[in-house]
Design a protein around this nucleic acid. Structure first.
Lengths: 239, 239
DNA sequence: CGGCCATTTGACACTAGTCAATGTGAGTGG
DNA sequence: CCACTCACATTGACTAGTGTCAAATGGCCG
């Protein structure tokens, strides 16, 4: 067992290909290592940052699972995303120097803290980092376009199918089974993300199970018929 | 009348405070002027860029009005935003070097073409520009969070009220009346943006009119009771 | 002036929401 | 180790809000 004192650096982090640019030379790699000033553990249920908090850093998720949510004045809130290892949260804070959403750990988690000042400084000198930062933000914009499409024009079954496929695909990219997953969030949180009530989420799961498309045991999901799920998510794909 | 040959530069563009950073010295201003290589006119109904097209530039809108929309495989499409003078479109293209949505002019328009390579180059040297680019992208992310809240948890009346208030506020910031506006988009486009069918949009307009909250004459809208609209958009604000 | 597209309005259908009761597991403390 | 508790999940019955389909109206452009 490795001694605890080894500082895990980006340069030898096994998530590097997920959260950092790939085409770096040795010198650039060394400098990237300086991006992460500290790491921070976040207990399940605790907030990484919250609405109104001063923005200082972006956070790269090392382990664990987060949700981000925005709140309306009247108390309703909307989950805007679920984030897992290798993904970056905190981008919402840049524009007004204050965060506009809450990031809450859905399981014990650890994040790399990257002061934004330092990111900007370094990305002036390392072109690959500059490009990378731009891509991360653009990717988030494109992801949100997809969510808007989902919320604006899909029905409950389609939404849940798309959600499961997306989750499975991201987990698969991280080395997990492409067909078996454990949900880290409640039905209510899924519903909030998908613009549905928790009862509807539950019913839709049950329907998928009846149809033999997925197996549902609480939060343990096994995708039995991925093509059928695909088809649910994009219903009228045939012409 | 000024001669046509005068090249309008960012440095003396009346939209500067909308689309460019403010705190620039003379030298930086001169360099920013080099960002815009050309201007491009887009006729009403024409596309500025479309899904799948190679990404090269961001576009700052000088005049006119655009919609951006993403398309699902099955033909459905979702309007992801309406953009007006001083706003920037094209950010979706950065992540994959190809655009993932269509930008279509809703009235004759003119845009400033800003090659992204040049933006990146210059923002390495002009800190204010770097910061500005980051803010523009972050602002778009935050805007989309708001749309997700709207699509995920608001009812038809609330959505339309929020939409009208947002449009009015943006137009007001551009020197137009805060209470009188001309919609540049159809009911169907509004519906697509708000996740509603065009009939629902129409009915909701009619209801607002009956209630004396707005006056609706085709696409001419006059807001008669802004507080009431505010209240519609944030229904349970009282405790 | 005519044709066309956008809009409005009505009647009805259906999806998802609401409210309520019941079931299930994970974790806790006796 | 077991019973208890609590949060989460499931299911049913009913309802409200939008969608769907269809018809009529109104403006605008050629």
């Amino acid at each position: 067992m490795k001694p605890q004192t080894i500082k895990v650096a980006c340069s030898n982090c096994n998530l590097r290909e997920l959260c950092m640019p790939l085409d770096l030379n040795a010198e650039e790699l060394r400098r990237i290592d300086e991006l992460v000033t500290t790491r921070r553990k976040v207990k399940r249920g605790a907030t990484l940052f919250h609405n109104g908090e001063k923005f200082n850093s972006l956070y790269a998720i090392r382990t664990g699972f987060f949700k981000t949510c925005v709140a309306a004045e009247d108390g309703r809130d909307q989950v805007t995303g679920f984030q897992m290892a290798g993904e970056v949260v905190g981008l919402d804070g840049i524009v007004n120097d204050h965060h506009t959403c809450n990031a809450i750990a859905l399981e014990d988690a650890e994040v790399c803290v990257m002061p934004f000042e330092r990111i900007e400084e370094l990305s002036r000198e390392v072109n690959a980092l500059q490009r990378h930062v731009h891509k991360i933000m653009s990717r988030e914009i494109v992801r949100e376009h997809g969510v808007m499409l989902l919320l604006g024009s899909m029905r409950a079954e389609e939404r849940l199918a798309a959600f499961l496929l997306n989750l499975a695909q991201r987990l698969h990219a991280r080395g997990f089974s492409p067909s078996e997953l454990v949900l880290r969030m409640t039905r209510e949180e899924i519903g909030s993300y998908l613009g549905l009530k928790l009862e509807t989420v539950s019913r839709t799961f049950s329907k998928f199970a009846e149809d033999g498309i997925v197996e549902v045991r609480q939060r343990h999901i096994r995708i039995l018929d991925a093509p059928a799920l695909q088809h649910m998510a994009h219903p009228v794909a045939c012409h």
